[in-house]
């Protein structure tokens, strides 16, 4: 589904990603872990098309198309979803309105008619229930006045409505208490399917107690330096990151 080949990217004058390779198959859940400043969030943002990063080398193909040539909205239409580490508050833009406009923009891109209003309403009510969100949240401005946990739940709610092919979740677990974490994880698990893939970026192993990944990668110094199955996450939790860094350090 997603193939990242030798990706190099700068933020300003600093090279953050230094030849990153990653391949995600359809239906797979990949977790990317790594110390602070290793480039995890940069990877998520570069894949979603945020301004402020310059790709200096490498390619990324998504479902057979070159991803890096696309605008952020085009990536969304092709099925990319980014769950933000810090969801933005947008006063005056209604949550439901945003989702309807987003779905209709995608319909238009696909050459399909606008979504049926009644059906849309049913869908968002169902998904809100899944995320244990009050109906009143649907009619509020995007994230305005939401607590940290509510914002993260809203991200997963949006994902549930938009039904992406690849969900990139950037530190979705950060700032969540254990109850909110369970709700968020249950929401993500409910969306796992054989045609949807996940790239879960996280600093801690905690989230992975609830969402079982197929693959775990360690990102450090702008490259994936170690990959394994879920047991790697447990090992990282027990030993920290230093042993991986030592093990893979290039001599000299």
């Amino acid at each position: 589904m997603l193939n990242i080949d030798n990706l190099h990217a700068n933020a300003g004058d600093t090279e953050i990603l230094k030849g990153l390779n990653l391949s995600i198959g359809t239906g797979e859940v990949h977790a990317i872990m790594g110390p602070n400043g290793s480039g995890k969030s940069t990877l998520a943002h570069v894949l979603a098309g945020r301004d402020g990063y310059e790709v200096t080398g490498g390619t990324v193909t998504f479902l057979g198309t070159e991803l890096l040539d696309m605008l952020p909205e085009e990536r969304a239409w092709h099925g990319i979803f980014l769950g933000f580490q810090y969801p933005i508050e947008i006063p005056g833009v209604n949550n439901t309105y945003l989702l309807k406009a987003a779905l209709n923009a995608r319909q238009k891109f696909r050459g399909e008619p606008e979504i049926d209003a009644a059906q849309f309403l049913r869908v968002i009510k169902d998904k809100a229930r899944l995320m244990q969100m009050e109906q009143s949240f649907l009619n509020r401005s995007v994230n305005e006045g939401f607590s940290g946990g509510e914002k993260k739940r809203n991200e997963i709610f949006q994902m549930a409505v938009l039904e992406p092919r690849l969900a990139i979740l950037d530190e979705t677990d950060s700032g969540l208490d254990i109850d909110a974490l369970k709700i968020v994880a249950a929401g993500i698990n409910a969306l796992r399917s054989e045609d949807r893939s996940f790239l879960i970026v996280t600093h801690y192993q905690r989230l992975l107690d609830y969402i079982e990944p197929d693959f775990v990668h360690v990102l450090a110094g702008g490259r994936i330096i170690k990959s394994g199955d879920k047991s790697l996450a447990l090992e990282l939790e027990a030993k920290g990151y230093d042993w991986v860094l030592d093990e893979t350090a290039t001599p000299g």
Binding site: A48, G49, E73, P87, I90
Partner: peptide, 17 residues
């Protein structure tokens, strides 16, 4: 960026804000 990442075209995102 938030709006566009959700699939709102740039011109519409500007109008929304």
């Amino acid at each position: 960026f938030y709006l566009r990442a959700r699939g709102i075209p740039e011109a519409s995102a500007r109008m929304m804000l």
